[in-house]
Design a protein around this nucleic acid. Structure first.
Lengths: 355, 355
DNA sequence: GTTAGAATTTCTAACGTTAGAAGTGATGCT
DNA sequence: AGCATCACTTCTAACGTTAGAAATTCTAAC
């Protein structure tokens, strides 16, 4: 029976010292707490006259419900975390954008977190951000061995992007990586390319995206009876422009033998093209190059970069559907959702230019 | 005197139904709540034997403190929001990365939000995310008229990036945009460029970054007695590759007159270069091009892109210092913090190539 | 064997919200 | 008049944490 702190609310003159609470509204309107929540939640059983009075009080105090109070009460936050290694990678930035937009469509706020800094961050994400009252996690491990993530999120629903956990601990949404690689090889063969190099396999992680793409690549090369040599196949862990540039450096002696290069990501391809051009290797005339992710930068490169495109909006929607189903209690075994991919053919893998 | 819900904690066999609470730990260890918090917070006045018992209970139950409970209790969350228009813009992605890293150094978790979707989002950010128990906001308005943001965050400390509010409602951290533009012009003049075009001014917003850069540009052109013509000065609102490509299209008839192009952002420059190359305008031989932001993609472009670089780590650190000072109650008038910039000269504004 | 004082622990009220249960009038029906 | 029904409102206990105040136990000195 006490509890009067001064300077409540948002009078337009003196700055109020703190945000208004439900209780302040109730006192100003002269009603109980429950009546105010009833008004806030637009419930029946509130007389029009009372409702008006409460609404006026809310407006006068500039009241906004405290989400913390709500979370504590309800146990729900309507927040999901998106965990990506680095937000400044173009593909992951585009992915984050798509997920944020999809979150909005599905009534969720998306909290984007970077996990690439340390093992600690990665594990926190994998554990579902314990203590954080996150309703779910959308997790894109890029550099971590999924087998390390055995003790996955016990309480927080999770959907994986990018890396498939063989244990099937969580739902997984992605394109058909193997098929997309076959499509890439087919496209190059259609353009008359016969001797194709590959950058990005990493046999150490059998479930990795790069490995899946490599499997598809090798299968297609086999099926189409294309020539292949071991020193045309370069492995690398990091799919960066820098790595791509370094890998292309290694391929320079093979130029003249190879006539196409498949890179497991656009960043690798961009780095490779940079090296090629610097060494007067013409793209696509001498070597066709193609990557994955269809990042915007590829469109503005010269030559513009061919790439395997994922419909990120669709991927993000599927991801949310799966995640929401888990949030609502779905206990089925982990599922794999495949979203369609599309080959975007631009200059880098097209016919020779006139230049 | 009741309150026993089943399936607490993290027994390794059956899945526990919910995360363990402080109370569960207290009961298992046979002590009071306060003793458990004392252990959690490493306080004195806990017998070694008791502490061991509590720690064992914590480990057995896999207890993690609920941040929601803490926030409610303390009113602090140690979370700051970073509000940017779009996370998939390269510069903003790099900025977000730097801010997240700096946040970690300063003990804050950074929640990145996209505000570019709607006015509603922009205003929510400007109001300091009312109801969200955010300790502070780092706000980078790109497309909004700052004058609309009169009713700024009443309760949430805020630091602005990118756009300076003339009212001085909030601290502002940025490079010296005007001086950087002078440096750009000086550099081009040093390279023998005489007739320089500019893309990106927007006189409608006098405080905008593009406008500040334009002022510096014009002043330097004046000071150095360089030729200037109105149709060499193109205005635009959006600093995208697409806009840059369209602006360059408009400049094509002027090629031969102009010998350099200053773009208010790297994205504009990348779009412009793409258009130039497509029309066989050689960069830098026919036209030198330079931008701002030093985004990574510029390094791997051919020709690689000269740019004004900001030390983002430094900028993010300054931002946090300012923000934390406000969080701790600093009520000084809004300040402007300037971080150094650096001209990164690459091929696009260098001497003619051999090609 | 007391007792002051320190060391350790417990009790309890808050933080802001929500919703079930209980309470108050007013209305309509017999 | 008596009573059930309904609309509306209040009361209260939770959600998980924290920390001041109060209570208990221990230690050591007399």
């Amino acid at each position: 029976m006490d509890d009067n702190r001064d300077d409540v609310g948002a009078g337009r003159d003196g700055r109020p010292a703190r945000p208004a609470r439900l209780k302040d509204v109730a006192e100003l309107a002269g009603v109980s707490l429950k009546t105010v929540t009833n008004v806030v939640h637009e419930r029946r059983h509130v007389k029009a006259e009372t409702r008006a009075r409460v609404k006026a009080a809310i407006a006068e105090l500039g009241y906004t419900p405290s989400l913390v109070g709500r979370q504590l009460q309800s146990g729900r936050s309507n927040i999901v975390a998106l965990a990506v290694p680095r937000i400044d990678e173009p593909y992951l930035g585009a992915l984050a954008h798509a997920v944020i937009m999809a979150g909005e469509r599905h009534g969720y706020t998306v909290f984007t977190d970077e996990t690439g800094r340390s093992d600690e961050h990665e594990l926190r994400a994998a554990a579902g951000y314990p203590g954080n009252s996150i309703d779910g996690v959308i997790y894109s491990p890029l550099a971590v061995d999924p087998r390390r993530l055995a003790d996955m999120s016990r309480f927080t629903p999770m959907v994986l992007l990018g890396e498939h956990l063989s244990e099937g601990a969580a739902d997984y949404v992605a394109i058909d990586n193997e098929q997309s690689a076959r499509d890439v090889v087919q496209h190059l063969a259609d353009g008359g390319r016969q001797r194709i190099a590959y950058v990005g396999s990493n046999p150490a992680r059998s479930s990795s995206v790069g490995q899946l793409r490599f499997q598809g690549f090798r299968a297609a090369v086999n099926d189409l009876d294309l020539e292949t040599r071991d020193d045309w196949l370069l492995r690398c862990d990091r799919y960066t422009r820098e790595t791509g540039a370094a890998m292309a450096e290694q391929l320079l002696p093979q130029i003249g033998e190879i006539d196409a290069l498949v890179c497991a990501s656009d960043l690798l391809a961009i780095g490779a093209i940079r090296t090629f051009i610097a060494h007067h290797v013409r793209v696509p005339d001498d070597v066709a190059v193609i990557g994955w992710d269809n990042i915007v930068d590829g469109r503005y490169l010269s030559p513009s970069l061919s790439s395997v495109a994922t419909d990120l909006d669709l991927l993000a929607d599927r991801t949310f559907e799966a995640l929401i189903s888990r949030i609502q209690g779905n206990r089925d075994p982990a599922a794999v959702y495949t979203v369609p991919h599309e080959l975007i053919i631009r200059e880098s893998s097209g016919p020779p230019t006139d230049a």
